Amino acid sequence: MRFRTLSALVVLATVATGCASTPDPASVTGIPEPWLQDTADGWAESDAFGGNTPVLSNDPCELGDAVPGILDEDPTITDSGWGSYGDDPTATDSYRYLCDFWSKGRYAGSLQLIQAPDSATADQTLQLFVSRTDTADQENTVTTVQAGQLEVHVLARWYPTNPQGEYQAMYLDTAHHALVVLEVNSLSSTDFAGYSDDGVAADLLAALASGS
């Protein structure tokens, strides 16, 4: 696993193209409180509560009504909803919340908040993420990037047998044992090469800033 610092220029460029009126990403110190509160409030009343499969609908995204621009494109949020997290689908203190999005002809993806029941489970989730290795049909590289004040872990994945790429950026908020993951997939070779670990980390930081 590699580690490097995300340049201020990348962060500023992402904010300028994604959502210029949001707070300074450099001020972000964790997952926005409204995200944690709003998703927690809705989990037990959601259609997914008590089941093992996420249930998505076209209801507004609780993580904001717009994902900051990715690859100079403003994506459209297509659906959102909750799913269980962990062994007990009726646990009220653990769940995941997803907002799916896409940009026609460019990419698809999701912004996901994972509320773990405790710090040990959150740490285990992070360790599983950073320990990804190559498989027969995946080339996986994990990098750790310092984005503003946050340590963001980035998975870059290329599918050589079905040529397309994917990036996932994960941030662990240890104070709330919660994680946020930005995934951008279905990338062409050109977009995969042009996006980068720094780019997806900056976009995750911009998304967190938009909710602050």
Rank of each mutant, 00 (worst) to 15 (best):
D118A: 05
T133S: 15
D173N: 03
P117N: 12
R132K: 13
L150F: 01
T161E: 15
P163E: 13
S119A: 15
A116H: 08
A120S: 14
G148R: 01
M170V: 09
R157T: 08
V145R: 05
D137F: 14
Q168Y: 01
E139S: 01
V142S: 11
Y159F: 09
A116V: 08
Q112R: 14
L126P: 00
L113N: 06
H176T: 15
P117K: 04
Q124W: 11
R157H: 01
W158Q: 07
V180W: 01
A147I: 04
T141V: 15
S110C: 05
V145N: 04
N162S: 14
H176E: 12
Q149T: 05
P160M: 11
L179N: 03
T143Q: 10
L179R: 09
P117G: 08
N140P: 00
Y167S: 09
T135F: 00
Q112L: 13
T161F: 07
L126G: 00
D118H: 00
A136D: 14
V130C: 04
A175H: 03
P117H: 09
Q115E: 13
W158D: 03
A178V: 07
T143C: 11
V145H: 04
A147R: 06
S119V: 14
A120C: 10
A175N: 10
L128D: 14
Y159T: 12
T135Y: 05
E151K: 10
G109I: 03
T133A: 15
A122W: 09
L113Q: 06
T144L: 01
Q127R: 14
S119H: 11
D123V: 11
T143P: 08
T143F: 04
A122L: 11
T135P: 04
S131W: 01
S131Y: 02
V180A: 09
Y167P: 06
Q164M: 15
Y107E: 07
A175C: 08
I114M: 06
D173C: 08
D123F: 10
Q127F: 14
P163K: 02
L179W: 09
L179D: 01
A147N: 13
S131F: 00
V154G: 12
